[in-house]
C-alpha cells in the first residue's frame, strides 16, 4: 500500500475515533457550575497524531472533528467556542512539539489550558463581559488536571501503536 493511501486511511480512522470520543464526552455529565470544564477526550487523538505524525495531520483531523461535532452534538454558538479553543490549543501544542523539549504530558496539558483560554477569549468577545476572566483560575486548574490525564494516555498510545508509516522527512 502506498504511503499516501496509508496516511489517508489513518487520518480517516483517527477522525472516526475522535468523533466517538467527542460523543462519549457529551454523555458524561459535568456537574460543575463553570462552563468549559470538560475532560477533552477527543484531544487524545490530536495529541497522538501530533506526536506520531505531524501538526498538519493533527490539525486536519481536529478541524474536521470540531466542525462535525458542533454539527451533530452542538450548535452554532458551541462551534464558536470550540473552534476558538481548538485553534489556540492546536497552535500552542504544535509550537511546543516543535521545540522538542516537552513530552506528551506537557504538550497535552498546555493544549488543554490554552483550549480553555481560547474559549474564555471567545466568551469575552461574544458577551462583551470581561468578568468572565473570573473563571480563568478554575479553567487553568481543570485544564492542567485533564490535560495531564489525556497526555498520560496519549503517551501510552504513542508507545504502543505503530502506524507503520515512514515519518515525513
Amino acid at each position: 500500500m502506498s504511503r499516501d493511501l496509508k496516511l489517508l486511511t489513518t487520518l480517516g480512522v483517527s477522525t472516526a475515533a475522535a468523533m466517538i470520543l467527542s460523543f462519549l464526552e457529551t454523555l458524561i455529565p459535568m456537574n460543575i457550575a463553570v462552563p468549559g470544564v470538560k475532560i477533552g477526550l477527543a484531544n487524545l487523538v490530536t495529541v497522538f497524531l501530533l506526536i506520531k505524525l505531524d501538526w498538519k495531520s493533527a490539525s486536519a483531523v481536529t478541524a474536521i472533528r470540531v466542525l462535525l461535532s458542533a454539527l451533530l452534538f452542538g450548535s452554532v454558538a458551541s462551534l464558536a467556542y470550540s473552534a476558538s479553543g481548538a485553534v489556540l490549543s492546536m497552535t500552542v501544542m504544535s509550537l511546543l512539539k516543535k521545540t522538542g523539549r516537552f513530552s506528551a504530558l506537557g504538550i497535552s496539558t498546555a493544549g488543554a489550558v490554552s483550549h480553555n483560554a481560547g474559549q474564555i477569549i471567545m466568551a469575552v468577545i461574544l458577551l462583551s463581559t470581561k468578568e468572565i476572566a473570573y473563571w480563568l483560575p478554575i479553567l487553568i486548574v481543570s485544564g492542567t488536571v485533564t490535560g495531564l490525564a489525556i497526555g498520560a494516555v496519549g503517551a501510552l498510545l504513542v508507545k504502543k501503536i505503530d502506524l507503520k508509516l515512514d515519518r515525513k522527512a
Binding site: 516537552f102 513530552s103 504530558l105 506537557g106 496539558t109 498546555a110 489550558v113 485544564g143 492542567t144 495531564l148
Partner: peptide, 10 residues
C-alpha cells in the same frame, strides 16, 4: 520541562 510547565500554570 513538563513539571516546570505544570508548576507555572498552577
Amino acid at each position: 520541562n513538563d513539571i516546570i510547565l505544570f508548576a507555572s500554570l498552577l
